[in-house]
Design a protein around this nucleic acid. Structure first.
Lengths: 156, 156
DNA sequence: TATTGTTATACTCTATAACTATA
DNA sequence: TATAGTTATAGAGTATAACAATA
């Protein structure tokens, strides 16, 4: 074997060498972390029969009553079409309601019902426990804030 | 209105006050960040027609040839049943193959084909560019490592 | 009996396109 | 003509249950 051939073989990239271990990959770790946090969320809210998107929609309406469906969809990062069933469910449970506006009769303004207001209060309490567990995992409020900053950076 | 009633009203928790803004919530930011990273990943690998789970499976087989399907499923965090179609696809494309073992003829050992080896080399190069973009967003290697540590903590 | 991989199936999440009623 | 919401539908991703071959 020539010197050339030896060098070629020595320098040939091997698949097993150029491929990283999965747990050094940002996207992989990010997904696993997200699944773990959502798992805790799901367990926390199983009794209340509340899913992440429903939680977020209620939280948005609570903070900004009168928001339009398209605004909620935008904030949630889903298509308006996918908010229809979600809002149908919240209305059927008597937690939120659509109201026609006088200014633009194509759109709805969204509000919590009285029942929805109460629901959101207990929802917020359950959420606090969940969030505190996640903050504890991270090592406290300070670390948690730094973590959120990093998530914002990586979200681009 | 009695002093009592006034105090009650003053102290009554209002939904809009106890509910946090979405962008202070760890789970919400985590999901948005994960979607953004996967978006970049999807764009990077659109030409190669490679999805995250396929990337991960190929990477695992490249690093540990002879792995069993159940082991890959475990490492990927999916059910064995859902790995069948994925492996079918990789085999049909000629990138990986199932081989029966003598020791346990129920299971398959998984290997890259020669074509798969080459594919993984170019896949690794595309991945490097993607990963470097994410590291740059985070502010460098050091920050990236700290970020991964935090993701591990929050994954529990 | 228990395990590996498979098939069939269902449920959730999300996306697109076509529709309606308003603007 | 454009927009807000709706309907219908399709594609991923993931889960469970029943089955065949093998241990």
């Amino acid at each position: 074997m020539s010197q050339e051939a030896i060098r070629e073989k020595r320098d040939a990239a091997r698949a097993e060498d150029v491929v990283p271990p999965l747990d050094t990959i940002i996207g992989y770790k990010l997904r696993r972390a997200q699944l773990a946090v959502f798992q805790d969320f799901a367990e926390s809210f199983a009794r209340m029969k509340l899913r992440p998107a429903e939680f977020s929609a209620l939280a948005l309406i609570a903070r900004q009553p009168g928001s339009k469906q398209s605004e909620i969809a935008e904030a949630l990062g889903v298509k308006p079409a996918n908010l229809v069933a979600l809002m149908d469910g919240l209305e059927k449970r008597g937690l939120a309601e659509r109201r026609k506006t006088d200014t633009d009769r194509r759109s709805y303004s969204l509000y919590l019902t009285a029942k929805g207001e109460k629901f959101v209060l207990s929802m917020a309490s359950v959420w606090r426990d969940h969030e505190n567990r996640m903050i504890e995992r991270l090592g406290g409020e300070g670390e948690s804030r730094r973590f959120i900053e990093m998530l914002e950076k990586v979200a681009g």
